[in-house]
Design a protein around this nucleic acid. Structure first.
Lengths: 251, 251
DNA sequence: AGCACATGCTGGCTTTTGAACGTAGAGAAA
DNA sequence: TTTCTCTACGTTCAAAAGCCAGCATGTGCT
């Protein structure tokens, strides 16, 4: 394996696990710990990670901000998107929802303004915050993923397989004309794909900072989605592209 | 475990419990108390926590429970039962837990003092409150029952059917020599019975007010349970009966 | 050959950790 | 209150693990 390939793989490891150890990587790649240390030094120089005694943790751009902190960021945009997204939902709708914070805000708005709603979700925050609402909530079950406070794994996927919803509402990490809609982690991406199969319509929520970004894993093509809700008007280039892809854009 | 990982986890413990004790952490991480003390010094230097004699507390929001709530919920009794129950659990144990509040307190105590624990539960509160713990948590999924903030229904039952635990920990509504252990609602009773089938041992938690009470639905006979944890000594009549039923009583 | 780069290894240095031991603090007893 | 006891704390030391700089080797390219 070439050096730059190994460094790419190290970055993938750190995206998934948030932290890596020198010894584990040395074993995994069958190289000496010295080599891994040298890789680390270089990656630290590029600001991709921060080294600690015995390993390194994720940092800066590559980082997925924990959902509990993320709500602090861009709360205005989320509120606006939530409102627009909620307007697209009718009474008596069955919704599948992922564990994104913007989706969470949208569901709270729906709870305020709509009735006879059924939600199927893998988000623990939705379960907890809407525990006193009038909404009928179904939880997927599964293994609790601490970083996003969501339930993932085969059990969650199987659960989704038994239900059919009118619409699925998703957040995302990046939107790219070339690479489609991308996510930063594997298990949740997989669950979104399963939700997609079991919903009549797909709505994606993304504030303006998500445009022309590419994250770790591709989840959807634009041709697979029905609505895109954002906070400010996208560029004409994007509008043309989305029209071509038959995506209804709302802002 | 690496030093920086351990320090991250110490902070998570503090976020959940507001305070931590040196000894508990040393046990939980299998390191000497001296090491924990050194971690504490560093974290205190970063302003993450404040040390006191024997442990440390979270900085800033040192929230106090209003006394009226304490009184209503019999927190003292629950705490005592939780402590006794937690002492019966070893490290590396797989636990099934229902959604009772005493069970919830017990799981928090287990989180403080044990390590390598896996929990399978239908309680939303457990999912939410232990979302930053070291415990590996599996949620049953199912329909959210608002009265108890728990997940019930066939999906929850099916989920349990795929797992096997070392011990199941339950609360209850009533204990009666004549009518056994009773519950006040159907769906959760059913789920307990399913958990019982998939656990090697059964532990029931009940404060003294539950004795000689009968609730709506019979869930178990005493011969089906292994441990009964309560807050004060039961009467001799009860002790004789429980011994005959082969139940180990702790208070 | 000469050069650039990647890798592994060596020896010295730093960090981390646990144990030992004396000191200091908290709570009980007088 | 003062004294006493038990636990927690801090310091010191030694061992283990990780880190770094430098050197040697190997590979590919000019």
């Amino acid at each position: 394996m070439l050096a730059f390939e190994r460094r790419e793989k190290i970055l993938k490891h750190i995206l998934i696990d948030k932290k890596v150890r020198i010894g584990d990587l040395a074993t995994a790649f069958s190289v000496s710990e010295e080599t891994i240390r040298r890789d680390m030094k270089q990656l630290e120089g590029n600001g991709m990670l921060k080294r600690f005694y015995g390993g390194a943790v994720i940092t800066g751009l590559t980082r997925e901000i924990p959902s509990r902190d993320r709500h602090l960021a861009q709360i205005e945009e989320k509120g606006k998107i939530a409102q627009k997204a909620a307007e697209l939902i009718n009474n008596q709708t069955t919704i599948m929802a992922d564990s994104g914070s913007t989706v969470f805000e949208t569901l709270k708005e729906i709870n305020r303004t709509k009735k006879d709603i059924i939600i199927v979700t893998n988000s623990v925050n939705v379960l907890y915050e809407l525990r006193d609402s009038n909404i009928d909530i179904f939880s997927t079950g599964g293994n609790l993923r601490k970083e996003s406070t969501s339930l993932v794994g085969p059990a969650a996927s199987d659960f989704i397989g038994n239900y059919y919803a009118d619409i699925a509402i998703f957040g995302c990490k990046g939107l790219s004309v070339e690479h489609g809609i991308t996510e930063s982690n594997e298990p949740e991406s997989q669950l979104k794909m399963q939700m997609h199969k079991h919903s009549k319509k797909i709505m994606v929520l993304a504030d303006h900072t998500k445009f022309d970004k590419v994250a770790f894993i591709k989840t959807f093509n634009f041709s697979q989605i029905d609505y895109l809700v954002t906070d400010i008007a996208p560029s004409q280039l994007w509008l043309d592209f989305l029209e071509e892809m038959n995506v209804e854009v709302v802002w």
